[in-house]
Design a protein around this nucleic acid. Structure first.
Length: 441
DNA sequence: GCATGATCATGC
DNA sequence: GCATGATCATGC
C-alpha cells in the first residue's frame, strides 16, 4: 500500500523532476497501473490530471496555487508533433485562466500568474489523434522557469493584457497584442461560448487564459538553440525596444545605401523579396531570423509607399484551397491565425527624386473591429465557394480585405466544389486599408 | 488611378 | 514540387 508515497519529495522541485523522468519515453499506461475504463479518453485535458492522480498519486490544491504547492511546481502536459525530424509544439501552452475582475488589482510580482507558473514541470508527449491520451509517449520532460532574458518581455506582455482590461477592452483582446505571453481563448467556442464580465465595461468578454504562444513554446522545445543569433540586450529591453535600436541607424537611408552598408546586393533584378531580405538582415545582421521574433511568432511585412505616401500594393496571405475552406471554421483558418499575430511593418517610401528610403519599422496588430470585418469577408468567401467559386469578394466589397489570385502562373489551378479547376487564390488586406493603418501609426 | 488578373524568386 | 511574400501587367 502507499506504493508511491515516498518515491519523491513533495518539497523539492528537483526530486519531483527526477521522479517525473521515469516517464521518459513511456506513456502513462506503461509507467503505471491504471484502473480499467479510463484508458479511452482522447481529450488532452484529461492527461494532466491522470498523471497527477495515478503517477504522482497526488491531489492538487483546487485554488490558484501551483499543483505541487510546497515545491512551488506547476505540472503541465502538452502535445508535440514530429516535423522534419524535430519536435514542434502542437499548440500554445495554457497557463492559467484570466480573471478580469481581479487582474486589474494585481501587480506582476504578486500576480496569480507568477505565483502559479514561475516554475513548471512540463511533460511533452507525442500527439496522435488516434491514440488515447494515456498511451501517448512522453518525449521530453523539463523543469522550466522563465529565463532572465525573457522576463522583461513577459512582464510587459502581462501588463499590456492588464491594461486592455483597465481600458474596458477585455472583449477586444487578441494574441497579437503581445509577444511571448498570449491571452488565448479558453472555454467552449461557437454559439455557446462562455462569456465573462469585465470590470471597466458592460461588454461581456470571451473567457481567456494566459498562455505561452506556440512559437514561444517551440523555442523552449529547441532548448533555446545556441546557434541562432539573439537580438542582444534583451535582459533589459523589450522586443520592441531592441527592434528600434536595430533599425535606427538605417532610418532615412536609401535602399542602395543600406544594401551597401550591409554588403548585401540584389542577385536578380526581379527578386520580389529583396526588401524583406534587407529587413531581416538589419534585424539579425545575417540571413537568419532573430530568435526573439520567432519566439514571438511575429509576422514581418514590408510595405512600399509611393511619392504621395500610398501603399503600392495590397498585402497577401497564404493561399486557401476551395475544397477545404467550405469545411473550415474561421478560427481554424490560416488567415485568422495570421491576422491575430503581431506584425512588424517595415515601411519604405519613394521620395520626390525617385529614391526609395527606409521610413520606419513599427509593430502593429490588427484592431478588433477590423478582424471582425476580415472574418465577415472570410465567411462570405466560404459561403460563395460552396455555390460559385468564380465570384469571390472583390476589393470594392470591403474596406479591409478581399480575395485575389495567388499562383505560379495562369495554369496553377486547383479543384473547386463545382468540379472545375480554378486559379489558386488567397486573402489580401486592401491597399487602402493598409494606407489607413499607416496614417494611424 | 484603381480593380483585377497574372506571375516572380526563393527556400524548404 | 510547392507554398509564400511580394510585385508586375492590363484594361477601363
Amino acid at each position: 500500500m502507499n506504493r508511491n508515497k515516498y518515491k519523491y519529495d513533495k518539497n523539492s522541485p528537483q526530486s519531483i523532476l527526477e521522479y517525473a523522468l521515469k516517464l521518459s519515453g513511456k506513456s502513462l499506461s506503461e509507467a503505471t497501473q491504471l484502473p480499467e475504463g479510463i484508458t479511452n479518453s482522447r481529450n488532452r485535458g484529461d492527461l494532466g490530471s491522470l498523471v497527477e492522480k495515478y503517477f504522482f498519486e497526488h491531489v492538487p490544491p483546487n485554488d490558484h496555487e501551483p499543483d505541487f504547492k510546497e515545491a512551488g511546481v506547476e505540472l503541465k502536459t502538452t502535445g508535440v508533433i514530429l516535423k522534419s525530424s524535430s519536435y514542434q509544439a502542437k499548440e500554445r501552452l495554457v497557463l492559467t485562466m484570466i480573471n478580469y475582475e481581479s487582474l486589474v488589482n494585481e501587480n506582476w510580482e504578486e500576480s496569480t500568474l507568477k505565483k502559479k507558473c514561475q516554475l513548471m514541470l512540463i511533460l511533452f508527449y507525442l500527439y496522435s489523434k488516434d491514440v488515447s491520451v494515456v498511451d501517448r509517449k512522453f518525449v521530453k520532460i523539463l523543469l522550466y522557469s522563465i529565463p532572465d532574458s525573457d522576463i522583461t518581455q513577459i512582464k510587459r506582455d502581462w501588463e499590456a493584457i492588464k491594461q486592455s482590461v483597465l481600458d474596458g477592452k477585455a472583449h477586444e483582446l487578441s494574441e497579437g497584442d503581445t509577444f511571448y505571453l498570449g491571452a488565448c481563448r479558453k472555454g467552449s467556442g461557437g454559439e455557446k461560448e462562455s462569456l465573462r464580465s469585465q470590470p471597466y465595461s458592460t461588454e461581456p468578454a470571451k473567457s481567456r487564459a494566459f498562455s505561452f504562444k506556440q512559437s514561444y513554446l517551440n523555442k523552449i522545445l529547441e532548448g533555446l538553440n545556441e546557434n541562432k543569433r539573439d537580438i542582444g540586450l534583451s535582459k533589459t529591453l523589450t522586443i520592441a525596444e531592441a527592434t528600434q535600436l536595430r533599425f535606427d541607424p538605417f532610418i532615412g537611408k536609401s535602399v542602395e545605401e543600406i544594401s551597401k552598408e550591409l554588403n548585401y546586393f540584389k542577385k536578380s533584378l526581379t527578386n520580389k523579396g529583396f526588401l524583406k531580405d534587407i529587413s531581416n538582415r538589419i534585424l539579425s545582421g545575417g540571413d537568419e531570423v532573430l530568435i526573439e521574433l520567432e519566439k514571438a511568432g511575429i509576422e514581418l511585412k514590408t510595405i512600399r509607399l509611393n511619392k504621395s505616401g500610398k501603399p503600392r500594393e495590397s498585402m497577401s496571405f497564404p493561399g486557401f484551397k476551395y475544397l477545404e475552406i467550405i469545411n473550415e471554421e474561421w478560427e481554424d483558418s490560416s488567415f485568422f491565425e495570421k491576422i491575430e499575430r503581431k506584425f512588424l511593418l517595415i515601411i519604405f517610401q519613394t521620395d520626390e527624386k525617385g529614391s526609395e528610403k527606409l521610413l520606419k519599422a513599427v509593430y502593429w496588430n490588427m484592431p478588433y473591429e477590423d478582424r471582425l470585418e476580415a472574418k465577415r469577408v472570410w465567411e462570405e468567401t466560404k459561403r460563395r465557394v460552396a455555390v460559385d467559386s468564380t465570384r469571390l469578394p472583390g476589393i470594392t466589397e470591403s474596406k479591409v480585405a478581399h480575395v485575389r489570385p495567388k499562383a505560379r502562373n495562369g495554369s496553377d489551378k486547383i479543384l473547386t466544389p463545382q468540379g472545375d479547376m480554378q486559379i489558386k487564390k488567397c486573402f489580401w488586406l486592401n491597399s487602402s486599408y493598409i494606407a489607413k493603418v499607416i496614417s494611424s501609426l
